[in-house]
Amino acid sequence: MLGEALLQRLSATPLFAVALTLTAYLVAMALLKRLGRPPWLPAIVLATALLVGALVLTGMDYTTYQEGARWLTVLLGPATVALGMPLYQLLPRIRQLWRPLAVCLPISATMAIVYALGIAWLMGATPETIASLAAKSVTAPIAMGIAEQIGGNVSLLLGALLVTGVAAIGFVSLAARQMNITDERIIGFALGVNGHALGTVRAFEIGPTAGAFASLGMSLTGTFTALLLPLAWRLVV
């Protein structure tokens, strides 16, 4: 632990929080490269664990850290807008397969929410927890906006995203084998719709077609859910 006076001095500007974040991220990246990038350990999980370790070691409390890290998180706004570029680049694929996608996407994206929330509700989760889990299959920057709209807790949502992403990667490969599906377009799309960015990274490891369809599934799920979930929430809750 750092001394009280030193910690206060370092926390006076956001730079210490930013430096901690960058360090944890880069160290995690380097470690993963050494480990050969195991699919069950996404970079973000390791990076966050290192960051939590660093906060505990330095004795910096989470609220102070978060204030400093706002310097980074403010970039989530333009980063979400930036997702419009890959979305535009995927438009030709959407035109090619618009009919199956137009049917599959709304059903899949809706059922991803309904299954999880139904189970959570049956098991007695509180309304705030349920609202936090709702956007669990949507890519993080978009999902954070949704959680804010419907009164969920952003940190819990992000934790839920990680669990969902890792689970989706495992289940898609298991289910595809079980159902004899080898079409990379189907596997990729399922990874993107259910496993957001984590699933998409995995899909690019399978191949470029799977990757492109995962990006497509992720973008469409994010857009569909962001446009309709908060509205549906207002009507139901």
Binding site: P100, A112, I119, A125, L133, A167, I186, F189
Partner: peptide
């Protein structure tokens, strides 16, 4: 609430993965 959270995420994702794969496979064939 942790059990409810983890179970709903994992089982929910299992169901939704099967739904997407099954649906898209049928639709692309059609």
């Amino acid at each position: 609430q942790w059990t409810a959270i983890i179970i709903s995420l994992i089982i929910g994702t299992l169901f939704s993965v099967f739904t997407t794969l099954w649906l898209l496979q049928r639709l692309m064939r059609d």
